[in-house]
Amino acid sequence: MKSKIAEAFDNCKKEKRSALITYVVAGDNSKKNSIKILNAISQHADIIELGFPHNTPIADGGQIQESSHRALKKGIELEDVFQIVKKFKKKNQKKPLILMGYYNLIYQSGENSFLNKCKKTGVDGIIVVDLPYPENKKFAKKCKKKSINFVQLLSPTTTKERIKKIINDSHDMIYYISMLSTTGGKLKLHPKTILKNYFNIKKLCKNKNLVIGFGITNKTISALKSADGLVVGSILCKTITNCIKKRQNPVTKLDKMVYQLRRMVA
């Protein structure tokens, strides 16, 4: 049976467009709002990435750090994250959802117990920022057994030899990090350069869905739309931050923003 993630990409390919993947942090800026935000943006986004917050994130820039900090301050725990997933999935069964975070939280839950909760609540995929290949082999296998996608990451520093091995060990989706940066950095490379690197990798994995993330905003997304999928995260987190400052409703703001982003990838 095809995974929901693979189906989402198939649909986009039929519509001859890039898949839009959005990232927000679970529980930002509250548990209730978080569910509302997911429900709103999933009308436009093809795949939902949901961050489970960690207080010592070594690969996240300021925007996502701030979102995580807000969620943790509200007392969000993994249990809450799974409740958010469950509620979201109840309403949006077909929409694929990927959990993203750091390994220590999975390690403390226990890999098996974490995956059981994922399965129970309907998580479709997992990204673990600090569990690279080949250290992730065992965990990736466990995910596959449960029909959960383990999303491998590639970066501009990944050697060709390594890229091949990682592709071999990947599932339906692979995440290409656009540049040397934490999340939310300013796009240091020209979109053309990023796409050139991207298609060099794509040649090696024609059947896989390869998405680009890091540094993508409403200003740069159109220029990259020939990719299989594009991840937008920090700009959404930043929008929530701004809404709080200006006392605006983050749900309607994000709804509008993701609607526009969706039009830009078509």
Binding site: D130, L131, P132, L153, P156
Partner: peptide
């Protein structure tokens, strides 16, 4: 061990 982002592997 090395629990690091992919970018730092190389």
């Amino acid at each position: 061990g090395n629990f690091i982002p992919e970018t730092l592997k190389k």
